[in-house]
Amino acid sequence: MKITMAHGSGGKSSAELMKAVFGKYFKNDVLDKMEDAAVLEINGKIAFSTDSFVVTPTIFKGGDIGKLAVCGTVNDLLMMGAKPLYLTSAYILEEGLEGDHLETCVASMAKTAAAAGVKIVAGDTKVVEGSGGLMINTAGIGLIPPEREISAGNLREGDKIIVSGFLGDHHACILSHRMKLTNDIVSDCAPLNDVVDALFASGAAVRAMRDITRGGLGTMLNEFAAASNCGIELEETKIPVRDEVQGFCDILGLDPLYMGNEGKMIAVVAAADAEKALTAIRSTKHGQDAILLGAVTAGKGVVMKTRLGGKRVVDMLYGEGLPRIC
């Protein structure tokens, strides 16, 4: 089956697509009522976020756009200290999309949602002219326990910076696909519930968290430093990058510090709690390669102590990281 404009008409073809694909994988007490809107009962402080996913290719090593659409929004909620509860899922299909391809992504989305403990409670599908593309928007709601105050503006001098694992895997994986390069680089696309749960369970005082998506670690840390009016000092030797990703970056002129990830996060914790936070994160599947790579200082901006003992400024990413000529 190929997607045609008829699948977006709201008529019989739409209903068939709904039943054959979405209905087959998305099932829960809220959605199954098939009302115009999901009715939810939530008491307390909520986190609410949305994100659109437009990655090419839509299926890649380590994931697909369906998995990504869950991870992206779930991780955004987690980073505010929230327990993710509900997602909406809006699909925009381009005519010509293979039904099997769509089903692979929908099945993966359902599986990832189950793994992340969220229910997909509302959805929409539109078909537009095009050439077989697939885009997804998700929005999500999570409940924040009353005692948690997580914010980029919370950093204090002496706090420690932990990164949950290797940088650049997702970005390098997607670029490899686009460049038709064969290598073993796999996207890190994953929901980070286990990492965040372990971190809070450790009892560490968590100041700020952020998932290291577009813009990369360099950009996120600059945002933290600006929001908290402080400096951050990093050690180059601690920056975790797999050899093959580093090699890939060296050839293309890309810097892993500015590359997007889909299953990595920064956690800033109080200095006294750094070790127990790190141990807790390392005990999880998605945080086993975590490392403590820097500290908050009284200065300004982000400075890196280089491998040779020199110092350099790490600025935000400007524009796109484009592959260069030589």
Binding site: T306, L308, G309, G310, K311, R312, R324, I325, C326
Partner: peptide, 24 residues
């Protein structure tokens, strides 16, 4: 040179200047 912080590792009497080697 920037990435490794070379300027912070050498005497200010050694000045490093950039040449025309960027095709763009």
């Amino acid at each position: 040179i920037f990435k490794s912080g070379i300027r912070s590792l050498i005497s200010p009497k050694i000045k490093l200047i950039s040449g025309p080697g960027c095709p763009v």
